[in-house]
C-alpha cells in the first residue's frame, strides 16, 4: 500500500537541517556544525555501502567540497541531503576509479545468514544484526539496487531526489529500490524463518 505515491520521506530533522544550512550560508559556523551532525550519519552509511572501509576518508573529501561550495546550494533540508549525497557519490566514484575496485564486495551470504537465532522472524533478525552485517547484506545486491536502497533508506531521499543523485529516471530508481528491498526481504526470510515462521515471508506481494 505504501507503493504508490512515494511521499517525500519526511525525516524528522529536515526542517531543522534546512534552517541550519540557511544560517551556515550566511556565515554561522555553529549552524554548519549542526548540519554536519544531521547529515553525516546517513551520508557515511551510504558511503560505506559504496566503498566499505574507506568511507570515512571519502566522506572527509566530500565534506571539504560541501564546505567550499555551500554558498552555491539552493534548497531546503531534504534538498541538502540530495546535494550532499551527490557530492559524496562523485567522490566515492573517483575513489573507486583510483582503486579500480568494484564496490560490490563478493559477499558471503552465510555471514549474514548465520546470524541470529534461527527461529526468529526476519524482523527480529534485522534488529539484531550489526551495522556491518546490514551493509554487507545491501552490498550483496546489484550495484544499482544497492545504491537505490541506500539512498532511500539510509540517506532518506525520496524517489525523484534519489534519481537525481544517480542520474537516472525516477521510474528506474524506484524499480531498483523495490527489487533490492524485495531481495533483502527474501534473504532475510530465508535466514530468519527456518521452521516455525509463517510461510509468506518476502513473498507477500
Amino acid at each position: 500500500m505504501a507503493r504508490g505515491g512515494e511521499p517525500r520521506r519526511a525525516l524528522a530533522h529536515d526542517g531543522e537541517l534546512g534552517a541550519a544550512v540557511a544560517r551556515a550560508q550566511e556565515g554561522d559556523e555553529a549552524a554548519f556544525a549542526v548540519a554536519y551532525r544531521l547529515v553525516q550519519p546517513g551520508l557515511l552509511g551510504y558511503l560505506r555501502g559504496l566503498v566499505g572501509n574507506d568511507a570515512e576518508d571519502v566522506a572527509s573529501d566530500a565534506w571539504l567540497e560541501i564546505a567550499r561550495d555551500l554558498g552555491r546550494f539552493t534548497g531546503d533540508g531534504a534538498g541538502f541531503r540530495g546535494w550532499t549525497a551527490t557530492i559524496a557519490r562523485h567522490r566515492a566514484l573517483d575513489h573507486l576509479r583510483r582503486q579500480r575496485v568494484r564496490p560490490r564486495s563478493s559477499v558471503l551470504e552465510q555471514d549474514v545468514l548465520e546470524l541470529p537465532d534461527p527461529s526468529s522472524t526476519h524482523e527480529r533478525a534485522l534488529e539484531s544484526i550489526s551495522t556491518e552485517q546490514a551493509l554487507r547484506l545491501v552490498r550483496g545486491l546489484p550495484r544499482d539496487q544497492a545504491e537505490a536502497v541506500l539512498l532511500r533508506v539510509v540517506v532518506g531521499l525520496d524517489g525523484p531526489a534519489a534519481a537525481r543523485v544517480l542520474g537516472k529516471r525516477p521510474g528506474a530508481v524506484r524499480t531498483a529500490a523495490y527489487r533490492g528491498l524485495k531481495r533483502l526481504a527474501d534473504q532475510l526470510g530465508a535466514a530468519g524463518v527456518t521452521d516455525d515462521g509463517p510461510g509468506t515471508l518476502g513473498e507477500s506481494t
Binding site: M1, A2, R3, Q40, P41, G42, L44, G45, R48, G49, T121, H122, E123, L126, E127, I129, S130, T131, E132, Q133, A134, L135, V138, V149, L150, R152, V153, V154, G156, Y178, L181, L184, A185, L188, V193, G197, P198, T200, L201, G202, S204
Partner: peptide
C-alpha cells in the same frame, strides 16, 4: 506489524536503523 509479513516500509525502517545504529 506483528511478525513475518514485513512490508517495504517496515523493512526500510529496520534497515535504516541497523545501518545508522553503528554510527
Amino acid at each position: 506489524a506483528p511478525q513475518a509479513v514485513l512490508d517495504d516500509a517496515a523493512l526500510e525502517a529496520l534497515l535504516s536503523a541497523a545501518v545508522l545504529r553503528g554510527h
